[in-house]
């Protein structure tokens, strides 16, 4: 028998966001409250299926009485909180966060939301021109996925997805510190020699294009990657009985990548190697 515990409803607190009073359940974050109210707040590292890292600072908002700006992704609402989501101070900080980020990594494949906010804040990606930055070569170590840490924005999502928040494999972690920090296996050994089980959950959460299916990487290299010509069909994985939902991304009648819906209650967007990569048997060989 499945027991369903019904929690008593959370008491509501009243807060003011951009001059508008609204209520939110106790325990909700400022970010959740804003998004429920259709107030756009950018994020880079936050993902609602993972624990908040407080790392990127794109989601900063101004909270009355606070000495510094506050990360909306992790600050819980409290009664009477007064929040400004796009004050001059907030915009200045967010713009600088993007400009600094752009000076340290290649943002060419960053997600659409980020690109939109960068335009909105008039971000000058060349502001720091010849700035020093670690240049990192693409890691192509197997036929399943590639790691291009030159694009990595250090959002830590992949580490959480590989580790405590989803896969519990701990194949990768942050190594080094400061601007030299990067995501790595131990001693930077190649993935096939590491603990990686090729669930591809890191690819599923990566917002920067740093982690990519080998198919997509190769198609981009040959100029054949055309997202506008792709269709997505939803199906249930047939390998086992768990019932994971798959989204098959198809271009020119061929599956090119596989994802799982973030809001699917079985997977929360996470899969295993079979669902993620085990589709070669359903389509004819290239030769």
């Amino acid at each position: 028998m499945i027991e369903t515990r019904i929690e008593p409803p959370k008491p509501l607190v009243t807060i003011t966001v951009d001059g508008v009073e609204m209520t939110a359940p106790q325990g909700a974050t400022i970010l959740e409250t804003c998004r429920d109210a259709d107030i756009a707040v950018p994020t880079l590292c936050y993902l609602d299926t993972l624990e908040a890292f407080n790392a990127c600072r794109a989601c900063l908002v101004e909270v009355e009485g606070s000495r510094t700006l506050v990360p909306s992704c992790s600050r819980e609402v409290t009664e009477g909180l007064v929040v400004e989501t796009e004050s001059e101070r907030v915009v200045a900080a967010r713009k600088m966060v993007y400009e600094l980020l752009a000076s340290s990594v290649d943002l060419s494949l960053v997600d659409g939301e980020t690109a939109m906010f960068m335009e909105r804040y008039d971000v000058d990606v060349d502001r720091f021109g010849t700035a020093d930055r670690p240049v990192r070569a693409v890691k192509v170590e197997d036929d399943l996925y590639i790691r291009d840490y030159d694009k990595c924005i250090m959002c830590f999502r992949c580490v959480a997805a590989c580790g405590p928040d989803a896969q519990n494999t701990f194949a990768i972690d942050v190594a080094g510190r400061g601007l030299k920090a990067t995501i790595a296996t131990e001693f930077d050994i190649v993935l096939p020699d590491s603990a990686c089980v090729y669930c591809g959950n890191c690819i599923g959460v990566c917002p920067s294009g740093a982690l990519m299916f080998k198919t997509e990487f190769d198609m981009r290299a040959s100029g054949d990657w055309r997202p506008e010509d792709q269709t997505v069909s939803r199906t249930v994985c047939s390998f086992c009985g768990v019932g994971c939902n798959l989204e098959l991304h198809v271009q020119d009648n061929r599956i090119v990548t596989v994802t799982s819906p973030m809001d699917h209650d079985v997977t929360s967007g996470h899969l295993c190697i079979k669902g993620r990569f085990g589709w070669s048997h359903v389509q004819p060989d290239d030769q």
Partner: peptide, 20 residues
């Protein structure tokens, strides 16, 4: 720049850009 832990963008990149 040397001592920044690297967690947040303002400090990870900002300290180095300040020195430059």
């Amino acid at each position: 720049g040397d001592e920044s832990c690297g967690l947040c963008i303002p400090c990870r990149v900002g300290t180095v850009r300040q020195a430059e």
